[in-house]
Amino acid sequence: MSIKLGIIGGGQLAWMMSDAAKKLGVELIIQTPSQNDPAVSIAKDVILSVVNDHYATEVLAKKCDVITFENEFVNLPALSLLEKQNVCFRPSLSALSPLLDKYEQRCYLQSLGLPVPNFFDFIEQENIADKITQLGLPVVIKTRRHGYDGQGTFIISELAQLASTINHNQSRFLVEKFVPFTKELAIIAARSVTGEIVTYPVVETRQKDQVCRTVIAPADISKTQNEEIVAIAHKLLNSLQFIGVLGIELFLTNDGKILINEIAPRTHNSGHFSIEACATSQFEQHLRTVCGLELGKTELNCASAVMVNLLGYETSFDSYQKQRQELAKIPQSTIHWYGKTESRPSRKLGHITVLLSENNQQQIEGIIQQIESIWYP
């Protein structure tokens, strides 16, 4: 008998669970707002509704055994009423609760003794300039909820920029000290219903305008730094009693220290390389964890892998067939095209992963340059 899994959210992260679902005999039932969302095409059943509509989630719950999440844009207080009626959410709502608000997430990490940048909460405008001066410019200002792919994140290098940023964005903010880093890193980790934990190789991520552009696996870091990041993942997953896959974004500072940037309580862009580069993709791993199955292996099956996001650079309805055909000629490459009907600047339209037989930095940089010269005009 197959497991019926409900997913709140129908974007590309849910869409990429399709192959694993077929392999494991899991039926996917999706709650998503638009018939055009990527995961609609692979779902056994679809409830068309916004992701924070708990009435729609109540309908979803009647159709499935377990409910999981593709994104963080959910209404936890409303969902808690369903949890009290024995609806099974994995990860649990209590595991999600400290993570959805960026300020509360940062406080939670700090309470566990995990390394984070200096920060404070900004609610009232009074004394904000004094607080920022004490912290030291530049600072990063982030909306506490619903920011992703650079949305709701602002780097402030002088106080004159502050008023326009705050006034144009009627939100509560997290303010943090800008971290001068040598690398941005990430790790995907998973925890099962029995408390078993597995981690994927630490990767280097490269952003442009706060949107992830490239992921390199494995990251070129020391053994000690790698062990520290794995230990962070274990401590966090166990503290939360988390069931599922979780992504942790980190900074490597100029003096070699590790700081946590953000936690994503779901599958994550930094783990897409795992579809081709590991025996068990992050998407299969997530299904295994939330469905109570045995966890899969996470080691690389190649010397290194490069994942490049294919980001929109214009507003159009083009399917970019010509560029995709050129990209497909790159040896050991696989393209994932998300089937979105509209392109707009910085929108993730797809990604390409290239497997390499050696871990050679020059070759890696060459592959990245080749992909981007084909993709971007």
Rank of each mutant, 00 (worst) to 15 (best):
L310D: 04
F69Y: 10
D65I: 13
K340Y: 07
N254C: 12
D45T: 15
L259S: 11
W15M: 15
N360W: 01
Q369P: 01
E365P: 10
H286W: 06
L135E: 02
I216H: 00
L60A: 09
L236K: 07
L287Y: 09
K84C: 04
G271Q: 06
L310K: 08
H272F: 02
K183L: 12
M16R: 12
Q31R: 03
K63D: 06
I47M: 14
K84Y: 04
L100N: 10
L93F: 05
L24D: 04
E204W: 11
R324S: 01
S239A: 13
Q105G: 08
I30G: 05
K235D: 11
L28F: 01
Y200S: 06
E58R: 15
E365Q: 15
E294P: 00
S171Q: 14
N52Q: 09
K340M: 03
T205M: 07
T267E: 01
S357Q: 14
E358Y: 00
D149A: 09
L174R: 11
K62G: 13
V175Y: 00
T315I: 10
I221Q: 07
D65C: 11
G292V: 04
A219F: 02
S192N: 12
K329W: 08
A190F: 10
K22M: 08
C302M: 08
E124G: 11
R106I: 07
H54M: 09
G6C: 08
I29L: 10
F122L: 15
K4C: 07
R347D: 00
G9K: 11
E227M: 12
V50A: 10
A328V: 00
L81G: 07
L246W: 10
I367C: 02
G147I: 04
I67S: 13
E314Q: 12
I367N: 06
K257N: 14
F181A: 10
D101P: 01
Q35W: 01
N301A: 07
F251S: 10
I156L: 12
A303C: 03
N309D: 07
K183V: 00
V74L: 05
E126L: 08
I188M: 11
L100F: 03
Q110Y: 00
V308C: 15
E72C: 06
I166G: 00
S97E: 15
R206H: 10
G10D: 02
V175H: 02
M16D: 08
S41L: 14
A303Y: 03
S97W: 12
A264N: 11
E358P: 00
S281F: 09
G366E: 14
A233I: 12
S171D: 13
F122V: 12
D220T: 00
Q285K: 03
K63E: 12
I243A: 02
Y103H: 13
Q325K: 11
G152Y: 08
I367R: 01
Q31T: 14
